[in-house]
């Protein structure tokens, strides 16, 4: 079924169109033109209109593309697992510092997602976390909250 095969793509283009619409609506909160020159609202309005137009164009193009040209996509599950791990890690950075979330995130990816040996995964995750934190927090003196008590 053609529509089934491309509905993800259409939704994605529609996302861009929505962003464009939001910008068009938002730009009206600002002055469009003042004195000699465009004011804060002018270019957001122009860009918003353009983005809506182009995204709709992409959707039209998708709908008019012959079915056989629709590309088969690879499965999504693994990417979602990684993205989920990334989001969880970022969410916990603010509460427990960097060391633990980064270590757990890598451990999860190595041992659960990639099914690599647990002991090696643990060692590699710990060593990589250590090296990166030494480089960033110590050598480059970036104020990275490393541990839960670093706040």
């Amino acid at each position: 079924m053609k529509l089934d095969a491309i509905k993800g793509e259409i939704a994605f283009a529609a996302l861009f169109a929505t962003v464009g619409l939001y910008w068009v609506a938002g730009s009206l909160d600002f002055a469009i033109w003042s004195g000699f020159a465009p004011d804060s609202g002018f270019l957001p309005l122009v860009f918003g209109v353009l983005l809506v137009g182009l995204s709709v164009g992409v959707i039209v193009m998708l709908l008019t593309t012959p079915v056989e040209q629709v590309v088969e996509r690879e499965p999504l599950t693994k990417s979602f697992k990684l993205l989920g791990a990334l989001i969880l890690a970022v969410a916990s950075l603010d509460f427990v510092g960097f060391a633990v979330p980064l270590f757990l995130m890598m451990l999860f990816m190595f041992s659960y997602v990639e099914k690599l040996p647990l002991v090696r995964s643990t060692i590699v995750s710990a060593v990589v976390t250590g090296i990166f934190l030494v480089i960033f927090a110590r050598w480059l003196q970036i104020p990275v909250p490393v541990f839960p008590w670093s706040y």
Binding site: Q141, V144, P145, S150, Y151
Partner: peptide, 10 residues
């Protein structure tokens, strides 16, 4: 919150 900060030692 009592904490020790070891950020960016000059």
């Amino acid at each position: 919150m009592t904490v020790s900060r070891r950020k960016f030692v000059i």
